[in-house]
Design a protein around this nucleic acid. Structure first.
Lengths: 241, 241
DNA sequence: ACCTGAACACCGTTCAAGT
DNA sequence: ACCTGAACACCGTTCAAGT
């Protein structure tokens, strides 16, 4: 209902009268769907292939500017692509879970999809698609906080807490994946080396846990952040009882 | 001091012995400090002035490429500028607070500074400066989680949870501030209008709290996210007792 | 109706040339 | 030793021209 590619390939099995002359010239023949699919392929290549409209034209075998006949600008295309990836997230969540596990599954699925299409997740960290699948995600989170026991304004603000936090969390991970190997190496050396060489007088706390700081994994931080959201909901429920 | 025409008509009344020949030609005479200060001025102008090296050259009254004599690339300059803004955050935290209020003060200060220099906060949401003031922030957060009662690996992972979450939170708010007015309006209309027009059959949860969703303020979400971090630390302390 | 391709107004960065 | 300015390799987007 909300998807723009609403033309349903409606020609049935009966032989089409004219084979729709299309391979004539440059073979392009664009559709919004083809553009979205090409965008997803490029985004899935991660840092090895930038998601630019010129690269997109190449992938489509068309002039770079041809996409402007189907999308107002690159941002509108990005919103559509992002909503498509949200569909992948939703499809990955199996039914029948309790509210805590539903949030965990949403977080896990979001992270997996964000790492699959890092350019999309990184660009969407502060955005809202306002498209079909986003409404489904909102419904999912609201269902979870309601099942937990929150109502009204309390449910609304906790939905926003969860939604914004997950978006930021997976956006951060995706952006990290897009960094140059050099920048990532510098970042990791901070934890593994620089924090061990700090002045113990000036930084006693860092000195005390320098070893443990180097051992913290991204997955441990991810899990702590997701569990913090769940705990916050539980705490709010307990307070409003 | 803020005007770009920095030629100060500097010949004083009394003839200085050797006036350190500098105002000779183009009057630029760059230093790393002057470049950082100019960057902060530009960043403080928000979305009305993009933080580009060409704009920076203009602000300095020098050729845009002159900054490359003092910083390896734009990223290194950004890291230096970001660490400077971290100093502003630290200066805003008054001493003598308990660990919870220390985290709240850090969050409040970070938000204020992020909204003051949105281009910097937005670019740093997934980064680490590895510079002096960042070490001070790490020490502050570690001190808070230690005072709360966490030790070793548990303290380390909770430090990362707090640090990464605050970075993401204020980065999101800063990025939102940089959006075009048009994009912001579209975002707000989602909450105030589109969510009220949703199909009640397909989206019962959204329908139930559509009114409250429109009423959620950014400040309420911000507070919920900060309190979630504090609650997570308290919960972890209670569990490990 | 849709695609092409030149063109525009930007980016960050390099490098030979100036002083 | 430091700054300049042309130049390069990119961006997203517009628009007249093609078919």
């Amino acid at each position: 209902m909300t998807n723009p590619a609403s033309k349903p390939a409606s020609k049935p099995a009966v032989p089409a009268p004219a084979p729709r002359s299309r391979s004539k010239r440059s073979g392009s023949q664009l559709t919004p769907e083809a553009i979205v699919q090409a965008s997803l392929r490029i985004a899935a290549r991660g840092s090895s292939d930038a998601f630019t409209v010129r690269r997109l034209g190449e992938e489509l075998g068309a002039d770079p500017t041809a996409v402007y006949r189907h999308f107002r600008d690159k941002d509108e295309l990005l919103l559509e692509v992002a909503d498509r990836t949200l569909g992948e997230v939703l499809d990955s969540i199996r039914p029948g879970l309790g509210w805590q596990d539903r949030i965990r599954a949403l977080a896990d699925g979001s992270l997996a999809v964000a790492l699959k299409y890092p350019a999309v997740a990184s660009a969407m960290a502060s955005r809202t698609t306002r498209r079909a699948n986003e409404f489904r995600v909102v419904e999912l989170i609201l269902g979870a906080v309601t099942e937990a026991g929150l109502r009204g304004a309390e449910a609304a603000v906790h939905y926003r807490m969860v939604g914004d936090s997950l978006l930021a969390l997976v956006g951060q991970r995706a952006a990290y994946l897009l960094f140059s190997a050099e920048a990532r190496a510098a970042d990791e050396s901070a934890w593994s080396r620089e924090y061990r060489l700090v002045d113990p007088q000036a930084f006693p706390q860092i000195t005390a846990v320098a070893e443990e700081l180097a051992g913290v994994t991204q997955d441990a931080v991810y899990q702590a952040r997701v569990e913090a959201l769940i705990t916050a909901i539980e705490t709010s429920v307990a307070q409003h009882r």
